[in-house]
């Protein structure tokens, strides 16, 4: 091989690698990115069976029930609709009624959201951004929770 051919083959190799990386990235984005829904949107959304999504909203008052061991069920509401959630595990420290949470998991055919993780706020003045934005859009945002920092 001449020097030029060598250099070309090196460049071609690098480009092939970059191409593969790009393809992989886009494939993964299509497969692995999960959408965020509020309860009303979740019921309207056309989900494939087993598709992982994130459900956000407030924990509806009076719906938190503890079952056997670490089973917990509660409802997540956006003031319009509410979705029952089933979860097995330890709830975050700041999980309380009427607090904003995000549950990650899949919607079962029976309409129950099977969560495999539940995230709450990091401190008492902070609300997950997606929830805060959605609640503001719906006009049910209570401003006492905002205004941390300065």
């Amino acid at each position: 091989m001449t020097r030029k051919q060598k250099r070309l083959s090196v460049i071609a190799g690098a480009l092939a690698f970059l191409g593969a990386a790009t393809a992989l990235t886009f494939y993964a984005l299509g497969q692995k990115a999960s959408f965020f829904y509020m309860p009303a949107e979740l019921q309207a959304a056309a989900l494939e069976p087993g598709q992982r999504v994130r459900l956000g909203g407030l924990v509806e008052a009076g719906t938190v029930k503890r079952g056997q061991g670490t089973e917990v069920s509660f409802s997540v509401t956006d003031g319009e609709r509410s979705v029952p959630v089933a979860y097995v595990g330890i709830l975050p420290d700041l999980f309380r009624e009427e607090q904003g949470i995000i549950a990650e998991g899949t919607l079962r055919p029976d309409g129950v959201f099977a969560a495999d993780s539940v995230l709450a706020k990091h401190d008492e003045t902070y609300m997950p951004k997606e929830i805060a934005d959605s609640l503001k859009e719906k006009g049910v945002w209570k401003d006492e929770t905002a205004g941390s920092g300065s």
């Binding site: 992989l24 993964a28 984005l29 497969q31 692995k32 990115a33 999960s34 959408f35």
Partner: peptide, 17 residues
């Protein structure tokens, strides 16, 4: 649309690379 890209994405791309 609000989406989240989490560990599954990075495990699939960053790992093989």
């Amino acid at each position: 649309d609000k989406i989240s890209v989490g560990a599954p994405f990075f495990n699939l791309t960053f790992g093989p690379l």
